[in-house]
Simulated assay, not measured.
Amino acid sequence: MTQDYGQPGAPVGGAREMNGLAIASFVLALVGLCNPLGILGLILGYVAKGQIRTRNNSGSGLATAGIILGWISLVGFIIIILGLIFGGWASWDDMQDWKDDNY
Rank of each mutant, 00 (worst) to 15 (best):
P8S: 08
G66P: 06
F26N: 06
G20D: 10
A65I: 10
M1N: 10
E17P: 03
I23S: 11
L84N: 15
P8N: 10
Q96D: 09
A48I: 08
Y46Q: 12
F26G: 03
I78L: 15
D94G: 04
G61H: 10
G61Q: 12
G66M: 06
D4T: 05
I72T: 13
I68V: 15
G32D: 01
L28G: 01
I23E: 12
P36L: 07
S91W: 07
G13W: 02
A24Q: 14
G20H: 05
L28C: 09
A22D: 03
N35K: 15
W71F: 15
Q96F: 07
L28S: 02
D97Q: 13
I43G: 01
K49H: 09
G41P: 08
D94K: 12
G88F: 06
V47K: 11
L30E: 11
G32R: 01
I80A: 12
I72C: 14
I81L: 15
N19Y: 04
G83Q: 05
I79M: 13
I67T: 10
A15G: 08
W92T: 06
N57M: 14
G88T: 10
W98E: 11
L44A: 09
G14Q: 12
W89E: 02
I39T: 08
Q7A: 14
L69Q: 06
V75K: 08
M1I: 02
G38K: 05
G38A: 11
R16F: 04
N102C: 00
A10R: 08
I52V: 11
G32V: 01
N56S: 12
L74G: 02
Y46M: 15
N102V: 13
Q3M: 07
G83L: 08
G61F: 07
I78H: 03
G70Y: 03
F77T: 14
G66R: 02
A90I: 11
L69P: 00
G61I: 12
P36H: 07
G6M: 04
L28M: 15
W89G: 12
F77A: 11
I68R: 08
K49V: 06
Q96I: 12
D97A: 15
G20E: 13
L30A: 14
T54E: 15
L69F: 12
P8D: 09
L84Q: 13
I80D: 05
V75R: 08
L62G: 03
A48N: 04
Q96N: 14
G13E: 09
G20Q: 14
E17N: 09
K99G: 00
G9D: 05
L40W: 07
F77H: 13
A29D: 05
G59I: 02
G41F: 03
I80E: 05
W89Y: 13
N56F: 11
N35I: 07
G87A: 10
W89T: 10
G66Y: 02
I79Q: 10
M95G: 01
G38I: 05
S25L: 11
A22L: 05
V75N: 03
G83D: 09
D97M: 09
D101K: 15
A29Y: 02
D101A: 15
D101P: 00
I43W: 06
P11C: 00
Y46L: 13
A24V: 09
Y103T: 07
G6F: 04
L82Q: 06
A22H: 02
L44K: 04
G87N: 09
W92Q: 07
W98M: 13
A15T: 06
I80P: 00
A15R: 13
A24W: 02
T64Y: 03
G76D: 08
